[in-house]
Simulated assay, not measured.
Amino acid sequence: MTTGAHTPSQPVRPQRSRLRTFLPLGVAAWLVLEIWLLTLVAGAASGFVVFLILLAGVVLGSVIIKRAGRRAFRSLQETVRQQQGGAPPAARPNSEGNGLMMLGGLLVMIPGLLTDAAGLLLLLPPVQKAVSRYAERTFERRLRAADPGTLGDAFRQARMHRPDGKVVPGEVIREEERADRDQDPRPPLTR
């Protein structure tokens, strides 16, 4: 018999986050609600009308995504053209809202009346601005709360040291290294 501290036979599992606990329940409730709404519409009109609504959602969503993608690509081309020409950053085109427009198109494409409503709401500019501001504030708050050594800390350090995001290629030559090289002309591999 050994003396000492008793080690547990089962490792202690970390507590599940609230998101991981309630997300499956939320998805299940959303699916049940979507199916219930579609059966209500089918009962009021017909199954063919529901099929046409779902088909129209897929077509409209693909058109929205295609339009947002083209807009984003045009914005990227214009930005590259202006950077090559040396245009000031204030003259760059406004490309905000393309990601949210694509998300709205994706929500419209997903079968269901609630997702269609949420997707159509995301296409409205005031809603896009509000969602964008909320997402930015949430991202900044989480970045500030990040522990040292995490990915959020790396983003913060990169933003502190390179606020403009420019990378200048080059080589750092310290004065003491230059003095050592001048005294010993042999390459380091032949020592």
Rank of each mutant, 00 (worst) to 15 (best):
M1F: 09
T2P: 11
T2Q: 13
A5N: 13
Q15A: 10
R20A: 14
L23Y: 14
G26E: 15
W30T: 11
W30E: 10
W30S: 06
W30M: 15
W30L: 15
L31C: 15
L33A: 15
E34M: 14
L38R: 07
T39H: 07
G43Y: 03
S46E: 05
V49G: 06
V49I: 13
L52S: 02
I53E: 06
I53N: 05
A56N: 02
A56F: 12
A56D: 09
L60C: 05
L60M: 05
V63W: 06
V63E: 08
I64A: 02
I65N: 07
K66W: 12
R67H: 15
R67G: 08
R67C: 02
A68M: 14
G69L: 10
G69D: 07
G69W: 14
F73L: 14
S75W: 01
L76A: 05
Q82V: 03
Q83R: 10
G85T: 00
G85C: 01
G86R: 06
A87G: 07
A91T: 11
A91Y: 02
R92N: 11
R92Y: 09
N94M: 04
S95P: 00
E96I: 03
G97R: 06
G97I: 01
M102Q: 09
G105Y: 04
V108E: 00
M109A: 14
P111Q: 10
P111F: 11
T115Q: 07
A117E: 10
A117G: 03
A118N: 06
L120G: 00
L121I: 06
L124G: 03
P126V: 11
K129V: 08
V131A: 07
S132I: 00
R133K: 11
R141P: 01
R141E: 13
R141F: 09
L143M: 08
A146I: 01
D147F: 01
G149N: 10
T150W: 00
D153M: 01
A154W: 04
F155T: 00
F155G: 03
F155M: 10
R156F: 11
Q157E: 13
A158E: 10
G165H: 10
K166H: 12
V168Q: 14
P169A: 07
D180Q: 13
D180V: 02
R181S: 06
R181T: 04
D182G: 01
Q183P: 00
R186G: 03
R186F: 09
